[in-house]
Amino acid sequence: MVNPMPDNQSHPDMSAGAGQAELPIKVQARDVCVSYSGKQALNHVSIDVPDRSVTAFIGPSGCGKSTFLRCLNRMNDTIEGAKVVGSLKIDGLEVNDKSVDPVVLRANVGMVFQKPNPFPKSIYDNVAYGPRIHGLALSKDELDAIVEDSLKKAGLWDEVADRLNHPGTGLSGGQQQRLVIARAIAVNPEVILMDEPCSALDPIATAKIEELIDELRENYCIIIVTHSMQQAARVSQQTAFFHMGNLVEYGTTEEIFTNPRDPRTQDYITGRFG
């Protein structure tokens, strides 16, 4: 189902299928190519990601899934020698446009990383940092409300309400990751990118994060990169399989995991990679 020649302009599988047709398209990519210091990392990726759902990117290491994720909030800008071409629109707005300030973009596109990375500050300050630098709260009360709301959305409020001024780094790994999600939510993003958010967590913490992701789906467009096929199957509605910088297959999660059409996807998810 994937065209063998990446420069071919026809992309048969840009949308995940008829089942998601009623959801509006949030992220639209057309022929996105990324190279690091001349080395091609992503070849002509075109994809439509619907809003209010979870889309999982799977694929072997170095397949370009994280690279693509980093295009969405222009984190590639921070990497020396990274070059992004092609059209990438969020809500119809070109992300790579000169007029788009990456700072504004990143407030709109939150990101959660592989290793929980809370700031070495208090739990409160961790969540309040984003609203503070963006000037989202006019008073202390407003800020308190944002912090409480974000922590509640991240399912962490009950666990930390009585120790908001304790250091965020003192929490357990799973709590830290939820704190980081709360920090991302606090600036009111529309898209949340997650780069292997559970790879450093135990199964119970992972389950909590997955539950959280499922709840957040109601309000956000979530894109998650994961190495765990089971996780992709559990949390996502759409799954995209990347291989060697190409988007090989994109479809509903059910279809990808029961009847992948491309033999590469087939081999990858059944553990036959060659």
Partner: peptide, 13 residues
């Protein structure tokens, strides 16, 4: 650590 820089950049600093 790079993770701290990324964390700050990702919330829009």
């Amino acid at each position: 650590p790079v993770s701290i820089r990324q964390a700050a950049l990702a919330v829009g600093a």
